[in-house]
């Protein structure tokens, strides 16, 4: 990713790195700031978790449970999702289609 005429002098490496970083430095700093904020919070939280590994390691299938949940508790979001997909379809086709005539 370094510049094309790579010169392997120390100065040359520093210059190339600098040129690469210059437009990205703000993004990096902001991303690191964000990461730091999140990580500090994540590591200083006592997350609740189960005491032991779930039993029955062989049969870890969640499919049935998920299916039941989708059609009981989360039937409303499921239905809304149907409308979402329909409108995404419509919107995407409308936007992507070329000239009518």
């Amino acid at each position: 990713m370094l510049n094309k005429e790579v010169s392997f002098t120390l100065m040359g490496v520093i210059t190339s790195v600098y040129n690469y970083l210059k437009p990205r430095i703000l993004g990096m700093m902001v991303a690191f700031l964000f990461l730091a904020v999140i990580l500090v919070a994540v590591f200083s939280t006592a997350w609740p978790s189960l005491d032991q590994i779930p039993q029955n390691l062989e049969d870890q299938s969640n499919i049935q449970g998920i299916g039941v949940l989708i059609f009981t508790e989360f039937v409303v979001p499921f239905e809304i999702l149907a409308i979402v997909l329909l409108s995404a379809l419509m919107g995407a086709i409308y936007m992507a289609k070329g000239d009518d005539k």
Binding site: I80, G91, M95
Partner: peptide, 29 residues
Amino acid sequence: IGMMFVASANDLVVLFVAFELASLATYAL
């Protein structure tokens, strides 16, 4: 419809999905 479901959502899943419905439809609009 998305907006209305956000208003009556009592669960974050409903809220998020309905929120996205309102967003996606208006992106194209």
